[in-house]
Design a protein around this nucleic acid. Structure first.
Lengths: 196, 196
DNA sequence: CCTAAAGTAGACCAGTCAGTCTATTGCTTT
DNA sequence: AAAGCAATAGACTGACTGGTCTACTTTAGG
């Protein structure tokens, strides 16, 4: 399995379609059609649709984790500013996709975690990795005295991730980033504040 | 269409299955099997699966709105206490379903708002109705001086609803209500506080 | 009591699903 | 050059999808 170009094409098309329509609504044939790959190749690289779905998750998570790291662990920028940039990037992406796709991991978490434990575990790990990035950024902010809250950074990180995911979901049904703006505003006005 | 017993059975079974597996993963035949209704009856009451799905949403929303009203507009209870009871009820439900179903409207919002505008509109309306209930409860709290925040109650309501929905999503993938507890704790410790 | 409509019943349809199968092509190693 | 494997290619399968069709049973109204 040296030639990964075909495999990559499949995963790219799959990620795109699954982002738009969800996992169950995306057929393998549709993926094959959009990238012009025959079925024989698909089952050469993946043992099943589930296997393929996990590969899509893995790849998305890896690529997303890179941008997350670049944003949240940029030590030249104050930690709260890094968070703001992260939110701004999310809002921008939401505009770009016309409020249609949102967050692939969030989508699949909603759709599949009740359907398959394998998927649930994989998605849970991705979320936990993201949370760790938030934790580190929040710890930075706490040691610098930028935030005064005594809440443990783990709880804050969970709060931020869930709030943001929920805001993305709401933005999708509302077709507007307004819920994301509300979340960010209240978060920085009342939760991540310097003096208690 | 006088006899609504069969129709109700279909909607009940549909709501249950869709809650567990999602809309796309739930086949009409599966619904028919679980409630022992023949296909002829299904298409007598509903013109299509989409029509059926909308009926399921409508019914769930109506029934849920009743409990929401009972909890959030109980004037014998302080507004913040009402909110706490709402969150407690949500956590309890999450335990009961073994962290598997979560919120039907949230699930469908994630799965379908990119797939069909009809569904998106219906789900958006439900969310907006819920937000209105929160707004009224928060206004109560503000006029009583229970919360000091100057944020408009509409923004706070959006913040609470999205945060809660996100926490439910995270609870599903984590199989634990911990994210819901984190959300509630930080919300009452740092956002809905009496003295600024 | 008869007629018409409401509702029940399930066989059936075309299309699609994930997945299998065999055949062929291209590349690498010996 | 030959052998062997990676990869391509797509026809094909059985199961299942949402939806249609016709026949039958029950109920309601005149």
């Amino acid at each position: 399995m040296k030639n990964t170009a075909t495999r990559d094409k499949l995963i790219d098309s799959g990620a795109q379609l699954i982002s738009q329509q969800g996992y169950n609504a995306t057929g393998i044939n549709a993926v094959l059609k959009t990238c012009g790959v025959p079925k024989g190749s698909f089952y050469h690289y993946f043992s099943s649709k589930e296997d393929f779905g996990l590969a899509v998750i893995e790849r998305f998570a890896a690529s997303y984790d890179e941008t997350l790291m670049a944003l949240l662990e940029d030590n030249d920028t104050p930690p709260l500013e890094r968070l703001k940039r992260y939110f701004a990037a999310g809002r921008e992406h939401m505009h770009e996709c016309d409020h249609a796709t949102g967050c692939l991991i969030g989508n699949l978490g909603q759709e599949l975690s009740g359907q398959s434990d394998t998927f649930r575990d994989a998605l849970n790990l991705v979320f936990q990795r993201w949370e760790q990035r938030f934790v580190r950024c929040l710890e930075d902010a706490q040691t610098r005295g930028d935030i005064a809250t005594h809440s443990p950074p783990e709880a804050l990180a969970s709060f931020i991730l869930t709030g943001w995911e929920g805001a993305i979901l709401r933005a999708k049904t509302l077709k507007s980033v307004e819920p994301m703006e509300h979340f960010e505003k209240i978060l920085f006005q009342q939760v991540l504040v310097p003096s208690s």
